[in-house]
C-alpha cells in the first residue's frame, strides 16, 4: 500500500486493531495448548511453540509503533492513556501466550503419563475459564468498558476455585498411585499457568479502567504504603522486623490486595 500520512487517530485505531489481533492469537493458544496437553500431540506442541514467535513479533511491532506515536505526536490525556495502556497490554498478552507455551512444554515432559478423567475434566474447565477471561478482558478493552474491566477480578474467582479443586485432584491421584511424582509436579505447574493467565486478564481489566477513567490500580497500594511509612515513626527495630516479615501480625498483608504482577 502506498505510504501515506496517517492521522493520529488512524494510528490509534491501528494500534487498537493490532492489540485485538494479538489478543485473538493468545486466546487461540489456550484451547490449542490444552488440546496438546490432553491428547499428547507432540506435533501440536512443536507447532505451538513455534507459533509463539508470531506473538513475540507482533508484540514488538505494536510496542515500537506505540513508542513512535508517543515520540512524534506527544499525546495528552486520554490519547496518552490509550497508548500507554496498549504498551501494558502487549506485555500482559505476550506473557499469557508464553504461559501456554509452558503448558505445551509440560505436555512434552509428561508424555506417556495417563491422566484420570477428573484431572482431564478440570484441565478442560480451567482452560475454558482462562480463555473466557481473556475474551472478556479484550471485550472490555475494545468497548472501553471500565465496569467490565473492574468486574474481571471477581469473575476470576471461579478460575481460582477450579485451581484449588485441581490441586486437590492431583493430590488424590498421586496418593492413589495413579500418578507419579514427576507428572504430578508438572501438572501442578500447568494448573498454575492457567491460573496466571486469569490474573493477566484481571490486570488487563485494570489497565482498561485506567485507560477509560485515569484511575491507577497502584494508587491504592501506593496509598497504603504511604500510610504505613508515615506511621513507621516507631522504633527502628520494629520497622526492620516488619520488613523482614517477622512482625507476625497480618497488618502488612492487606487482604483483597491488588494483583501486583510486575
Amino acid at each position: 500500500m502506498p505510504e501515506q500520512r496517517k492521522s493520529f487517530h488512524q494510528e490509534l485505531a491501528e494500534i487498537r486493531d493490532q492489540i485485538v489481533e494479538l489478543g485473538a492469537l493468545v486466546r487461540e493458544f489456550i484451547p490449542r495448548g490444552t488440546d496438546v496437553l490432553l491428547t499428547g500431540d507432540m506435533g501440536g506442541a512443536l507447532s505451538l511453540i513455534d507459533a509463539d514467535d508470531e506473538i513475540d513479533a507482533l508484540t514488538l511491532r505494536i510496542e515500537e509503533q506505540c513508542y513512535s506515536a508517543l515520540a512524534r505526536q506527544q499525546p495528552m490525556a486520554s490519547d496518552m492513556r490509550s497508548i500507554v495502556t496498549a504498551v501494558w497490554l502487549t506485555g500482559e498478552l505476550e506473557r499469557s501466550g508464553d504461559l501456554m507455551v509452558n503448558v505445551a512444554k509440560a505436555a512434552r515432559r509428561i508424555y506417556g503419563a495417563t491422566l484420570d478423567p477428573r484431572l482431564r475434566g478440570l484441565i478442560e474447565r480451567m482452560s475454558e475459564e482462562a480463555s473466557r477471561l481473556i475474551s472478556l478482558s479484550l471485550d472490555a478493552y475494545v468497548e472501553r468498558d471500565a465496569s467490565l474491566g473492574a468486574a474481571l477480578g471477581d469473575i476470576d474467582d471461579a478460575l481460582d476455585a477450579l485451581h484449588g479443586d485441581y490441586i486437590e485432584a492431583i493430590f488424590d491421584a498421586h496418593s492413589g498411585q495413579d500418578l507419579g511424582l514427576q507428572p504430578a509436579v508438572q501438572l501442578a505447574l500447568v494448573g498454575r499457568y492457567y491460573e496466571r493467565i486469569g490474573d493477566h486478564a484481571v490486570n488487563i481489566g485494570q489497565r482498561v479502567q485506567y485507560m477509560v477513567t485515569g484511575w491507577l490500580p497502584e494508587q491504592t497500594g501506593a496509598a497504603r504504603l504511604r500510610a504505613r511509612t508515615s506511621f513507621s515513626v516507631v522504633s527502628a527495630d520494629e520497622a526492620a522486623a516488619r520488613a523482614a516479615g517477622l512482625d507476625g501480625s497480618s497488618a502488612g498483608e492487606p487482604d483483597g490486595s491488588v494483583e501486583g504482577d510486575r
Binding site: M1, P2, D17, V20, E21, G23, A24, L25, R27, E28, S135, L138, D139, V142
Partner: peptide, 28 residues
C-alpha cells in the same frame, strides 16, 4: 481497491470487519 479500502462486500463479510477474537484473525 488498491489502497485496501472496501468497494463491495456482502453481509456475511461484515463479521470480519472490526472483528474480535477468532474473527479478528480471519480478518488479518
Amino acid at each position: 481497491d488498491a489502497t485496501g479500502a472496501i468497494l463491495e462486500r456482502n453481509i456475511a463479510a461484515g463479521a470480519f470487519i472490526d472483528a474480535r477474537h477468532s474473527d479478528a484473525l480471519v480478518g488479518a
